[in-house]
Design a protein around this nucleic acid. Sequence first.
DNA 1: TCAATTCTAGAATGATCATCTTAGAAAGAG
DNA 2: CTCTTTCTAAGATGATCATTCTAGAATTGA
Lengths: 189, 189
Amino acid sequence: MTRPRSFDEAAVLHDAMDAFRRSGFAGVSIKDLGDATGLTSGSIYNAFGDKEGLYRAAFGYYIDAVIRRRIETYVGEANDLNGLEQLFLSLLCAPESDEHGCLLTNAAVEFGAQPSVASQGLAEGFAVLEAAIRRVVEGQIGGGQVGLLVARLLLLYQGILVLIRAGQNISACPAVIRSEFEQLRKLLP
Amino acid sequence: MTRPRSFDEAAVLHDAMDAFRRSGFAGVSIKDLGDATGLTSGSIYNAFGDKEGLYRAAFGYYIDAVIRRRIETYVGEANDLNGLEQLFLSLLCAPESDEHGCLLTNAAVEFGAQPSVASQGLAEGFAVLEAAIRRVVEGQIGGGQVGLLVARLLLLYQGILVLIRAGQNISACPAVIRSEFEQLRKLLP
DNA sequence: TCAATTCTAGAATGATCATCTTAGAAAGAG
DNA sequence: CTCTTTCTAAGATGATCATTCTAGAATTGA
């Protein structure tokens, strides 16, 4: 009975994700989203309910297909500092560095802490990110300063994504990341 | 001939600045800005030309009344690490911590690197901030790693403002800032 | 006080917005 | 093949948007 979707949902969410990363939620219209995804407004409303529904779906897709995937790729099962360092260095490459920035960071700044269409995605995204960092720091270094070190890395992560989005000169970032992780390695037992 | 303005321009720009910090440029309407400032739309258009003109004026006000003032207050003529540390710690207090975030950071994320109504303010704001940090690092520490240290501090600055805006737990931030500056002090000649 | 000037208030305007409706196309079940 | 179901396409709708217009209030120089 239920007909299969006639469009590629992952591809649509990918395109919508890029549109939201580029222009934010308020800065993009249903028409823009139709142009970006190749769907008509009717199809969007039928498939996702409304603009907020599409945003939520695209945000969820971003968390899974970009953030979780990046963590698995670089940190994976090893949970070591080298992998986490590679993860940070990878931020300087696509897709975050493609001038659209990170949807998590962009949404955090656009919506802030108020309840919004982004609240759930923000909570999940920050939790996933912090958990991955904490897993590595706790497993490799431990001790009483885990909270401090995790906060340092989270701050660095967000700072990098702001500078990338702003188009600032990020040529010094690799050296900052490497010096940060060199410091952490000195704390290895 | 030219009558003085019948409203307090600084107060209006302050209110507009808060509205833009809260909701971004795309997320706030002329009606919202009228409600926030107490002006009618006619007065806004008469005084500032259009919504973009008011945004530019509010952004300029923010750079002068918040960023430059903060730098003068904490760094001033001394240009020492202690003052810069106090500046970073002050970010955790008002007005940035009032849940609206920093207009510079918010604009950087909303508009990105593309030419926009925020381009000039972004360039000026980042330049003012980086120059102040560089002045202290160069004067106090110097050496070949000035670029690296300035980048570290800029990244930390932006990271803090994202986490504040996102309403994340910032209780670890003071310790991160203090440890960062302790490290810098070890580099003092 | 009076006249010239410049402001403000509030309604008006046309564009764009998110959303809905309707008519019909496509796909699977029998 | 045909019927039922579910989709898409495209235009319609009412709200909201940025902006402008108009009438009149306020201020200052004389």
